[in-house]
Design a protein around this nucleic acid. Structure first.
Length: 370
DNA sequence: AATTCCCCCAACCGCGAATAG
DNA sequence: GCTATTCGCGGTTGGGGGAAT
């Protein structure tokens, strides 16, 4: 037997609230309060509405001190931090943002923030920026200690394999291969410690993606992608800052439809992007899809560079995710596309200068510095 | 100018938790 | 302890409206 309906569905109005309904509800609650019974309230207030609908209208729109409109950068940061820690517990997140409702935050996350904060996976799979020269993968590191958010994220804890061990990344990561091309950073399932496969919900996949990159960062420190995800392609200077085209520096230009967004990058480092010339040139320098595997061992220094977390979505070491990332990204957005953060010639070392001159630059090679 | 597409967000739905009787 | 009822939450939907064609 099904559950009894909370109200007579046939005699209640649905859909958008009229101003007079808002007025009735507000006046009633101002005068009498909710009485601790939402189900009985609409009848008392003379409203042909379901009690749940009244409650929602009051909580999300009519109650005092509700804040509408643009979210601040600080609010963005708080939402991201908490989401990484506790997942989609919108009411808890809303409790940290005075004036914001859980519904508001949920909508904001689903429609804007999630797209704005993509953690690299799409870029890695599709972006020509990904097809750059990278050091080979390090040998699989010893099982790392779980970062703090593993321990209190119910979402993550709910993955049974975490009870005893670290989630092993999907297969390709174990291959000592110098290409990231075929790696799925938002897996729909992950292998578990007992050899079976565990299906992931979208949000779990997203978090898992963030976590993996915590340990196997595909780009160096400070990597952060602002992009439009699998939606429309990016264009420069979107008013909401959701994505922006990186303009070329050097001889080529990134095609707009291939560009996934902005990269917050470290200074004094660079990577080489090549596209449109993937059939020729020095395979180590200009190959779009490097195919050679390598057994070259990583130096301690390299390993350190790739495993130190700084500004990642995944948290560790007491540093809040995005603690400095947003500032940089904001700068990137507001500075049009040719940001000094991206193209910081002054910060190149002599060694890098030399390396650049020696490099084989095809017509379409683009240099980025970070 | 007309039509289609797409994004945003208010509102709905269903479920589990909490509470009352 | 059991059942009925209500609350609160998170996922989803669909209509309005602006942008693109």
């Amino acid at each position: 037997m099904g559950r009894a309906p909370c109200c007579d569905k046939a005699n209640v109005k649905k859909g958008p609230w009229a101003p007079e309904e808002d007025l009735k509800l507000k006046e009633f609650i101002d005068k009498y309060g909710t009485g601790g019974n939402w189900i009985a309230l609409p009848q008392k207030a003379g409203l042909k509405r379901c009690g749940k609908s009244c409650r929602l209208r009051w909580l999300n729109y009519l109650r005092p001190n509700i804040k509408h409109g643009e979210f601040s950068e600080e609010e963005d940061r708080i939402i991201c931090t908490l989401f990484a820690s506790i997942g989609s517990r919108w009411s808890i997140i809303a409790a940290q943002l005075p004036g914001r409702t859980d519904n508001d935050i949920k909508n904001y996350w689903n429609t804007k923030l999630k797209k704005k904060l993509m953690i690299g996976n799409m870029a890695l799979n599709n972006n020509p920026l990904n097809h750059r020269k990278l050091p080979p993968y390090p040998p699989p590191p010893p099982p790392p200690q779980l970062p703090s958010f593993y321990n209190y994220s119910p979402l993550i804890k709910s993955l049974s394999c975490l009870e005893t061990s670290f989630i092993p990344p999907p297969n390709p990561i174990f291959h000592h291969h110098n290409s990231y091309d075929n790696y799925d950073f938002t897996p729909s399932s992950v292998p578990t410690s007992n050899g079976s496969s565990l299906n992931l919900q979208p949000q779990e996949s997203f978090l898992f993606s963030a976590m993996q990159q915590h340990y196997y960062p595909p780009l160096k420190e400070g990597f952060l992608v602002f992009g439009s995800g699998d939606q429309a392609s990016c264009s420069s200077n979107n008013s909401d800052g959701s994505c922006s085209q990186i303009s070329s520096h050097g001889k080529g230009q990134i095609k707009q439809e291939e560009n996934m967004g902005l990269f917050g990058l470290e200074q004094n480092q660079r990577f080489i992007v090549d596209y449109g010339n993937n059939n020729g040139g020095d395979p180590n320098e200009n190959q779009m899809f490097p195919t050679t595997t390598t057994t070259t061992a990583w130096s301690t220094d390299d390993h350190q560079k790739y495993t130190t977390t700084k500004g990642y979505f995944g948290n560790s070491g007491g540093m809040s995710p995005l603690e400095y990332g947003l500032e940089e990204v904001k700068q990137l957005i507001t500075n049009n596309s040719s940001s000094s953060l991206l193209f910081n010639d002054e910060n190149k070392t002599a060694e890098e200068e030399e390396e650049e001159e020696e490099g084989e630059e095809g017509e379409n090679t683009v240099y980025y510095y970070y």
